[in-house]
Structure formats: C-alpha cells, structure tokens
Design a protein around this nucleic acid. Structure first.
Length: 276
DNA sequence: CCTGAAACCTGTCTGC
DNA sequence: TGCAGACAGGTTTCAG
C-alpha cells in the first residue's frame, strides 16, 4: 500500500480525523500490547509496552514512508508500513482485525491498531528518531526540493533511473507505483542511466514526480485489490499494472520488465530509449 | 558504485 | 476441487 501519498493520507487521518475516527492527538496511551514481537524493531517488545504506557500523543507527522507519532517526555514512535501494514483507530470493544500485530489502548475508549498481514512492518520507540531517519534523502514535496536539487541527487550516478527513484537515500517516499507513473509522465525510459539526462529531462522528471505525488495525496492514495483503504489514485494509473494494455497517450501496448527486482511498467513509444 | 539474488511473510489469482 | 507457481505498494544484507 504505502508510498508517500498513502502514508501521508494515514498521517492526516490520525492528525485531523478521518477514515471513520477522530484525531488521536492529545490521547494518552493507557496500555500497549505487542502480539507479534518482531514488529518492534526497538526496543524489545516488553520494554516497548512499558515505555509507551502513560505517554500522551502530541503530534503526528510523516518523513518519507515513515509515520511519526510524537509523544510527550521526548519519545517518538516511528512506524514503517512496508508492504501490507495499516493503522486504524477502533473502539476498544471492537473485534481486532485478523492480522493485528500490536495495538495501543487509549484513555478515551479507542484503540490504535496496527494490522499487517505480511509481518514486514516495523515500529521503533525512541528518543532519537534522527538515528533512524538520517539516511533518508530529501522530501520531494518540500519547497527546497527544486529541479536543481533533483539534478544534484542524480549527478554522477550511473544506475538506472528506476532503481535510483526507489532508493530512499536519493529521494524519500517514492515507491514502485509512483516511480513508474512519474517516469511515464516525464517521458523517460526506466532503464536510462541517471547521469545521461539533459537539464530539460531532469526538469520534466521533477515536474512529473511532484505532480504524481500531489495528485496521489489529493486522491487519498491508491487502493489495490484486497488492500483497499479508500483512496482513488488507482483510477489515474497510466502504466502501473497495465502490461499489455494500450497506452492512453499513443496506443502502444504497455511493456513490463524487471528492474531492481521490481515490476516496471512503461510505454516503449512515449518513453523511448534515446539511441532511437 | 552497481547489479542481482535471497530473505523476511501471508494472501490472492491463474493455469493445469 | 486441488495444487503449484507467480505475484504483490518495501527494505536489508550479501556476493560478485
């Protein structure tokens, strides 16, 4: 599910209310319960339960694909949803979702639930979130992420464009869907070595990245298959998941190749290999 | 620096 | 209906 727009959608719902629940800011954690210990990366599961107890949630933020739950006393819970994680706010008496890995009971009769079928998601409870977030590249929607900033991140890199877009140290928050969609909108072949882009091509990529992420957020993210979560951006896909179907722009069949272990979708005509 | 493979997991879908 | 295989929005680690 979760790339930047999906995580932003969840953060916004927790901060301002939405998805059928009010905001969790100002609520106090009455107790914490870890059902699948490997979910907690730091500290150990029992310490996590003990340290979370009694904390007040003071704010909710996002950095890349990480969700930040700011707590009082200098603590922060970092959540990474990975492939299948989801956060929900439910009444304490509601039945737990089938794949609940941990939950916080709040002092207002609600429960913050982390549901994660594939068990890849991770939580950290720390007083030094920077120690985990430091390697991340710039936020692509921040005002200082200019075309020049993007050019600087790609400079001297010979790796394929698609691989670099997925590298969180290069830019934070881009995943497989938004990488493919941005490359199509920019008219760039996913296998292009990053250091072969002209300034115009970098500007086009910058524009496409911002546009696709902003539109994703505006549509509350994308919903796919059984991982439905209420977003609508899947209706705007031009290449992702459309292998063999015709490009909306030129009618050429969309191709699928494997890049950096990930399915990569592109239009061979709109995203030509430069050599002709 | 770069690529690919494997590992961490469960669920869904397709084809035989 | 059963079953094998492929596939899935992510990241880390390791070999070459």
């Amino acid at each position: 599910m979760p790339e930047l727009p999906e995580v932003e959608t969840i953060a916004r719902a927790l901060r301002e209310g939405g998805r059928g629940a009010g905001p969790i800011v100002h609520a106090r954690v009455r107790s914490a319960c870890v059902l699948w210990p490997p979910t907690v990366a730091e500290p150990g599961p029992r310490a996590f339960e003990r340290l979370a107890q009694g904390r007040v949630i003071t704010g909710v933020a996002r950095r890349g694909k990480y969700l930040l739950l700011h707590l009082d006393a200098g603590w922060t819970a970092l959540v990474h949803l990975r492939m299948s994680g989801d956060l929900q706010v439910l009444p304490t008496e509601a039945m737990l979702p089938r794949h609940t890995r941990l939950y916080w009971d709040l002092d207002d009769g609600r429960r913050l639930v982390f549901d994660d079928p594939r068990k890849f998601g991770r939580w950290w409870l720390t007083q030094n979130p920077q120690s985990i977030l430091a390697p991340l590249g710039p936020e692509p929607l921040a005002p200082d992420f200019t075309p020049q900033a993007l050019a600087q991140r790609l400079r001297g890199r010979r790796a394929r464009l698609k691989a670099l877009l997925l590298d969180q140290r290069v830019i934070a928050g881009i995943g497989n869907i938004y990488a493919d969609e941005a490359l199509h909108r920019a008219g760039l072949h996913p296998l292009r070595p990053a250091n072969t882009l002209s300034p115009d091509e970098i500007a086009a990529l910058w524009q496409a990245l911002r546009q696709v992420l902003q539109e994703g957020i505006a549509r509350n993210g994308a919903s796919i298959d059984w991982m439905y979560r209420g977003g609508e951006f899947q209706n705007e896909f031009r290449v992702y998941g459309r292998a063999g179907q015709l490009c909306y722009t030129c009618g050429t069949p969309i191709q699928r190749v494997r890049v950096a272990q990930r399915s990569t979708h592109f239009c061979p005509r709109c995203q030509p290999w430069p050599s002709e």
